[in-house]
Write a protein that binds this DNA or RNA. Structure first.
Length: 477
RNA sequence: GCCUCCAUAGCUCAGUUGGUUAGAGCGGCGGACUGUUAAUCCGUAGGUCCCAGGUUCAAGUCCUGGUGGGGGCGCCA
């Protein structure tokens, strides 16, 4: 049995003289003779050559931008520049007419903001289709990398009974009637009558559950949707995004950093090797976009150049304490250009991270060993008693792509941190028990999938690397 | 949540110190075209100048409020 061929199949194994049938959407129809056809399987179009005199006039009129057509004909070497092969059409059929006077898209450059308002159609554009093929490829490479390295894919819950993950505001999940919820005697909402018998939320992280996997299967990862009800209006945040969270037993912080760097480089290399055509298109697109910007706002390198540069150079690794020292010796610090204070104990702000990544080192930077008071309760306390074994991977342009840590595996110390940070112990007893019963040192991190796709595709807004973006005020479809 | 910039034709934009009938390119529609690559050429129709108030003899232009969008910051991935 063999499946119907896509355009990618046809073009990859083109045999001149072969008769093929193809179907797709019209990208352009020139001179009543040349149809640029694309079926989404590849960035490459197939040129169909029709003889207008042999075609019905009404049929000819229906062949226009983004109309869907099927054609049968003979594949031949193209006499003109621009494509290697073309299809000499013997028979053409319009599967889906496209009335252009009502169709919102146009065969010309459209802004990303405009396309966002037409999410049902925007995947048909060259830019978005390339982005989404790339997104798929990166998703596949993530599974492949973990599989090759003996990490098992663990599906952690999307509805969680815990609200102590501390990663941000949560979306409540309930079946109670919000207009008339059941009440207890003292007038409070009676959550016992809710579907699960207690309050539940959409997950903000699968990490805590993934740790149970790591302490059983050794190495696991999650890759699923994550929800944050933060009213973040930035080109780097979504209310619903996909996160990758590996968690590995017997890993310390250095192993965790090694994993992060090796993993990211593997993904970038995979994209460069397998999505050359899409990346070339996105590279040119970005170059054109950059031309409209002021010189000082332009990226120092093009897209392909950036990806190759990241592959070829080791990530710079520094401790938080070193980062503070470097920042305090920097020009913008001495001239008072930083908006936020730089002192030990205060979190690094975006402006500080950007200086480290873009000015000081000019490459990805991993900052580790942060003060314990600005990090989560589950991070392992270092021997100095002041810092924790945490690390952030910072990328040029988008900032933090990965946040991770070695987890606190010592029961007493974890319990103490939970008390200090007001984490309710009753709810989290299962998590503490992982330390009490056969515990092990372990570490992991979270990678924002859309931020990765943003980096590899060069798209400037995260809303354009997910098909149906969710952000404050927006949940269409 | 805070700070900024923007809103004129289907799209991208121009519109002078406030001045009488609001423009261009692209797209659409009609036509021409046997090698095009964002084809080209000719013709043509498109406007509640985001909404509501206000100032003025006069508002696309100035003021106030709202709505929508972009960017920056915070929260983070």
């Amino acid at each position: 049995m063999s499946l119907k061929k896509t355009l990618a199949d046809v073009l990859a194994k083109a045999v001149p003289g072969e008769e093929v049938t193809v179907a797709g959407w019209v990208r352009a129809f020139r001179n009543q003779r040349f149809i640029a056809l694309n079926d989404g399987s590849t960035a490459e179009n197939l040129q169909l050559v029709v003889d207008p005199e042999k075609l019905d006039e009404n049929l000819l009129k229906q062949i226009g931008f983004h109309a869907c057509v099927r054609a049968r004909g003979k594949l031949v070497e193209s006499p003109a520049a621009g494509q290697k092969y073309e299809l000499q059409v013997e028979e053409v059929e319009v599967l889906g007419d496209n009335p252009l006077s009502e169709y919102p898209l146009q065969p010309k450059r459209m802004t990303m903001e405009f396309l966002r308002e037409h999410a049902a159609f925007r995947l048909r554009t060259q830019t978005l289709s390339s982005v989404f093929r790339l997104r798929h490829g990166l998703g596949y490479a993530i599974h492949r990398y973990f599989h090759e390295n003996h990490f098992y894919y663990l599906h952690t819950p999307i509805i969680t009974g815990s609200d102590a993950e501390g990663a941000g505001e949560m979306f409540r999940v309930t079946t109670l009637d919000l207009n008339d919820p059941p009440r207890t005697e003292d007038g409070a909402v009676d959550w016992k009558q809710d579907f699960f018998g207690h309050p539940t939320n959409l997950t903000v992280s699968g990490q805590l559950q993934a740790e149970t996997g790591a302490l059983a299967l050794g190495r696991v990862y999650t890759f699923g949707p994550t929800f944050r009800a933060e009213k973040s209006n930035t080109p780097r945040h979504l209310a619903e995004f996909w996160m990758i969270e590996p968690e590995a037993a017997f890993f310390d912080l250095k192993d965790d950093m090694d994993l992060a760097e090796d993993f990211l480089k593997y993904l970038i290399r995979y994209a460069l090797e397998n999505y050359e055509r899409d990346l070339n298109f996105l590279d040119k697109r970005l170059e054109q976009e950059e031309r409209n910007k002021k010189k000082e706002e332009r990226r120092p390198m093009g897209l392909l150049e950036t990806l190759n540069f990241v592959l070829e150079h080791p990530f710079e690794r520094i401790t938080y304490t070193e980062a503070i020292r470097l920042l305090q010796g920097s020009k913008p610090y001495k001239k008072g250009r930083f908006q936020f204070p730089v002192e030990w104990g205060k979190d690094l702000q975006a402006e500080h991270e950007r200086w480290l990544v873009e000015k000081k080192f000019g490459r990805p930077v991993i900052v580790c060993d942060y003060p314990k008071d600005i990090k989560a309760f589950y991070m392992r306390l270092n021997d100095d008693g002041k810092t924790v074994a945490a690390m952030d991977v910072l990328f040029p342009g988008i900032g933090e792509v990965i946040g991770g840590s070695q987890r606190e595996e010592r029961y007493d110390l974890l319990q103490q941190r939970m008390m200090e940070m007001n984490i309710p112990q009753e709810e989290m007893q299962w998590y503490l028990d992982l330390r009490k019963f056969g515990g092990a040192p372990h570490a992991g991190f979270g990678l924002g999938f859309e931020r990765l796709v943003q980096f590899v595709s060069g798209m400037s807004n995260i809303r354009d690397v997910i098909a149906f973006p969710r952000y404050p005020g927006h949940a269409e479809f």
